[in-house]
Design a protein around this nucleic acid. Structure first.
Lengths: 220, 220
DNA sequence: CGACCTCCTACGAACGTTCGTACGGGTTTC
DNA sequence: GAAACCCGTACGAACGTTCGTAGGAGGTCG
């Protein structure tokens, strides 16, 4: 028999997340999940009471981790742009090797019954508010910036961030840090000056010449 | 009995799209769809051979319509920024009252068996290439812009566009045209000058001075 | 005019399969 | 010896789908 990864419940949740990402909640059967974890179907019920619990726990844990991460990333940082950079970086790195998890969060956001869904949504909104605060601190123009504009811009940011689960491959599109930098750049300045490349370090303003030479870019 | 909407198959596909959006492919049963369309389960098989056909036809028709629309929008327009504007406007307007359809396209992109999936993907890639061409025409900086950067920026654009299915409500976030303008603005210039509001008319090119003055240059 | 044929749409009943899960009891680990 | 883990078996419900049949609209032909 093949070895188990992780221990007990943790391993189960992990395997479940992958199966959920692949087939969706209703497309994943407990039998199949049992096979994938080398157990009999009945055994799964030693870890959870219902199939639904799997989805619930996966989603809850994910948002809790995201919130904790964001807090860490932002601790002690006060410069608005740098705060945005940290947040985006943390988010991208977190999901870079967890695209399956992002997929579950998105595709199964409406699967849980109302009460549990609300519990998840509350966490999600907390996360959203953090991001909105950061975007608000970085918007430029007439002041104060309109609420609607900030809201839209924040959703745009999340669109860029979360859509990555469907396309991003480090081997083709750069490291997670590069991706994060590109999204930050896009958020701040759009496609202007894009091909000068996103700055990897917190960035002292450097010579543009050198960077262009060092980049993989141009026409391959 | 409640009146039927549309005729025969067309009505069925429409109802199916809504049901698919709500429950997902595996979560939607033929029995439920039959109830929703005031028919007996067996009757559905006068319109399609298999449940799968519903999803296939819905996705195929959707992309065909999107491609046709894009072609129309771009016909005879040559200014790069205006072309982007048209494309985005067309996309946003198309999905503004079809959010359920966007959801189906996204959530069930991997549901069909390989052959049919490939058929859909081919159309999707055609659509993507159109967008990439537009983005490429609008990127600023060292020339030529790197392939990877353009690719990433295009995905970012689609992220902003498609993510809307989960949050956009005209009553809260402005008309579809306003949303489209906001996304174009975001794509071109990021959050700079955002709260001046998106320009409702095609927009006189404003004095560059004014824009530069509004830029975040100083903000680290 | 009626007789006949062809489509399209509709239905109830049933088929074989798979679903989530309950139960009772076994084995391993500290 | 408790706690953690595992299993074979069973069950009712729901699944996608098939079958045989029926009503009615439209066309053609005598």
């Amino acid at each position: 028999m093949s070895a188990r990864l992780g221990t007990g419940r943790e391993e189960l949740l992990n395997a479940a997340a992958r199966a959920l990402a692949e087939h969706g909640y209703h497309g994943m059967s407990m039998r199949e999940l049992a096979r994938a974890t080398n157990r009999a179907p009945a055994t799964l019920y030693n870890y959870v009471e219902h199939k639904e619990d799997l989805l619930y726990l996966i989603q809850r844990d994910a948002f809790d981790q995201m919130l904790a991460r964001a807090e860490e990333e932002l601790a002690g940082v006060s410069a608005p742009v740098e705060r945005l950079r940290r947040f985006v970086g943390g988010h991208v790195r977190f999901f870079a090797d967890r695209q399956y998890l992002m997929r579950v969060l998105i595709h199964e956001a409406a699967t849980l019954p109302p009460e549990r869904r609300a519990e998840i949504r509350e966490r999600k909104e907390r996360y959203f508010r953090v991001a909105r605060g950061l975007v608000s601190g970085v918007v430029q123009g007439a002041s104060p910036p309109g609420e609607v504009e900030v809201e839209r811009a924040t959703y745009c940011l999340f669109g860029m961030l979360n859509w990555t689960y469907g396309w991003y491959q480090p081997s083709r599109h750069g490291t997670p840090d590069e991706l994060a930098a590109a999204i930050v750049h896009m958020t701040l300045s759009g496609v202007q000056g894009l091909s000068e490349g996103p700055p990897p370090p917190p960035a002292r303003p450097r010579s543009n010449r050198a960077r262009v030479a060092a980049r993989p870019g141009g026409v391959r």
